[in-house]
Amino acid sequence: MTAETELDPVIHAPARLRVVVTLATLRDGDNLSFTRLQELLGLTPGNLITHLRKLEDAGYVTTVKSGSGVASRTSVSLSPQGRKALDNYTAVLRQLLDSASADGTSPQ
């Protein structure tokens, strides 16, 4: 297994990073409603849908719609692949920060 050295571009965007970190706070087997996620992140519905679609395409999140009409609920959860991607991302981030502080440089 090779160590990752680059930040995952799917996650490396402020809004998507916040989505993934927020969903990672939930326990395995839990999901969060779209409206609560939107409220927590302060994103517009359209913006959140766009970011969720990118994360879903990468296999990092799963969205499930249940019910119909006013009782409909869209729930979002982080997939095991998404949790692993976030772990890798934070590990690479830590590595970059450590090497930058060792070199006295500012990583971009």
Partner: peptide, 13 residues
């Protein structure tokens, strides 16, 4: 928040 806004490593952290 802007779509795919570029972030430095410190900003990401």
């Amino acid at each position: 928040m802007l779509e795919d806004q570029d972030m430095s490593v410190q900003e990401a952290a």
